[in-house]
Amino acid sequence: MTDQEAGRADRVVMRDIRKRYGMVDALRGVTLRVGPGEVVGLVGDNAAGKSTLMKVLAGAVVPDSGEIVFDGRPVAFASPKDARELGIEMVYQDLALCDDIDVAGNLFLGREPRRAGGMMLDVRRMHADARRHLDALNIRIPLTDIPVGGLSGGQRQAVAIARAVTFGPKLLILDEPTAALAVAEVETVLELIKTVSAQDVSVILITHRLQDLFRVCDRLCVMYEGTLRADLDARSTSLERLVSEIVAHDEEDKEGRRR
């Protein structure tokens, strides 16, 4: 398959993405492709560059070089708004919520329902829609008019997830979406991933809960020090293999240094 053919078949292709922060080479030429409806698990040790790579894809970080092809068209994101308009939604590790704004306000942040010709917020519709969206996702937050700063960690995470999945994304990026969730809530998120991917939504999942990856992912991509070092089929890969790819994939190298 040539590059062009691949570009047409894939939801998104990131090619040779590089990003440097001063002395730190966060991304050293990463290439990643995700097909429509595919669930890709992105794993790697801390500081492997997973979050930075995903922020590039969500438009929150502008890369130094490299290209992104989305639905066959080359794109360049100057801000998260550009990515959002194409249907790329991300749940950030730090959730990216405004603590002083209420649940409904955070859910609709940046795309509030408006009235009076776009001049005014349609607050009533915001709360009604927020209620509907939260109920549809089985998220139990009884009141939509309390500031999210007053919610529990799990509830905050649920708000962040609801915000990303509610507006019909084509590509959903989840950066540690289950870290603060209770067991049953984790199940809900995993079910959610299966549901949206069945609807042809592509999902990229970053998580440290490796057992979750095997339940929902089609492919597993392992990052190491700013590079993509392994692209594995989730169905034929064992947990041991994955762990060894994450921590000790250059065993010989280390052995060599040790001696």
């Binding site: 801000s79 998260p80 708004k81 991300m90 405004c98 704004i101 942040l109 940046g110």
Partner: peptide
């Protein structure tokens, strides 16, 4: 209290980076 601009002003003071990632200029 009633316009998107007012909402973004509060959001900017509350957590500017979150507001930026929500696609607001």
């Amino acid at each position: 209290t009633r316009t998107p601009f007012g909402r973004y002003v509060i959001g900017l003071g509350s957590n500017g980076e979150s507001l930026r990632r929500a696609g607001v200029n």
